[in-house]
């Protein structure tokens, strides 16, 4: 990990702790999504000690103000203050899982050491709403907007093959081309067609999921709050948006899998 060339020897920033892992005798390496530098990896000395004053502030999902000093290869946390601990979120297993889905998505989609203020604000707002009791429809709204602010917004207005305007109808979605494929282009069914070459099978897209994604795109979360995402629609969003995300990351969002497993029960 190269230190950011523009950082002074000691610096301050704020961020959301994504994850921590053990390091050395009793240290922890932390991944923090910061407002100023994007994702940074830093070390917290002696965080695993029972008497560590910093450890309580640097738990995953916490929104913290941090002070750092540049180190050889990796910077060191010298101070931390909790701005928002999201404590109600932590009080349930589903809450923890939902919060982890958010930070895992941000870590996966945000290139390291690149600030993205819009993504940062989206993450903070979403954790805040989750902490206030919001649930799974918010996660889909969040996922859609993570794609938007990181340059992967799905094309929902015109066919990604022929560029014709998409009529309100049943269509297909191409993960490889990142958008809707019109009924005509999908019907061609040429296995060597452009969507097949893009490396992912087409997914069927119901009119409802198309409408919901357009609604996500055009509205703030306050409007979405009134939306009733039933289990059928949730399943479709999982298939289409989840499938698109899986295609982009070339892996599943692990916390999502864990969250889904919780509702199935042990």
């Amino acid at each position: 990990m190269q230190s950011h060339p523009d950082k002074p020897r000691t610096y301050k920033t704020e961020g959301v702790v994504i994850r921590h892992s053990s390091s050395g005798e009793d240290d922890r390496v932390l991944a923090i999504y910061t407002i100023d530098y994007g994702t940074i990896h830093v070390v917290g000395r002696s965080l695993r000690r029972a008497k560590s004053k910093l450890a309580g502030h640097l738990e995953p999902l916490s929104h913290v103000a941090i002070q750092l000093i540049r180190g050889k290869g990796i910077d060191i946390v010298t101070g931390a203050d909790t701005l928002h601990g999201h404590t109600s979120l932590r009080n349930s297993l589903e809450g923890i899982a939902r919060g982890l889905v958010c930070v895992e998505m941000v870590e996966a989609f945000a290139p390291e050491e690149h600030p993205n203020p819009e993504l940062y604000q989206l993450l903070l707002d979403t954790l805040e709403q989750l902490n206030g009791g919001e649930a799974d429809r918010l996660l889909w709204y969040f996922a859609f907007h993570v794609l938007r602010v990181t340059g992967y917004m799905p094309e929902l207005q015109q066919c990604v093959v022929c560029s014709n305007a998409i009529q309100p109808d049943e269509h297909m979605f191409s993960p490889g081309l990142g958008g809707v494929v019109c009924t005509d282009c999908a019907r061609d069914g040429d296995p060597a067609g452009p969507h097949e070459r893009a490396g992912a099978p087409l997914l069927s897209l119901s009119l409802n999921s198309l409408k919901v994604m357009r609604f996500f795109r055009d509205n703030s979360y306050d409007a979405v709050r009134g939306l009733n995402v039933g289990s059928e629609l949730a399943g479709e969003l999982q298939r289409v948006l989840g499938g698109y995300i899986h295609y982009l990351l070339e892996r599943e969002v692990r916390s999502s899998t864990f969250l889904a497993g919780l509702s199935r029960g042990p």
Binding site: L47, R48, R49, L58, E59, L93, P266
Partner: peptide, 29 residues
């Protein structure tokens, strides 16, 4: 939390260590 959910149907008393251990710390230390 997961274990508690799993053990609840067995109707055995389930307890958690007191908060003398500060948040973020590990038992081993």
């Amino acid at each position: 939390m997961y274990l508690h959910r799993l053990l609840a149907p067995l109707e055995i008393r389930v307890t958690r260590l007191a908060r003398g251990l500060s948040t973020g710390s590990e038992l081993e230390y």
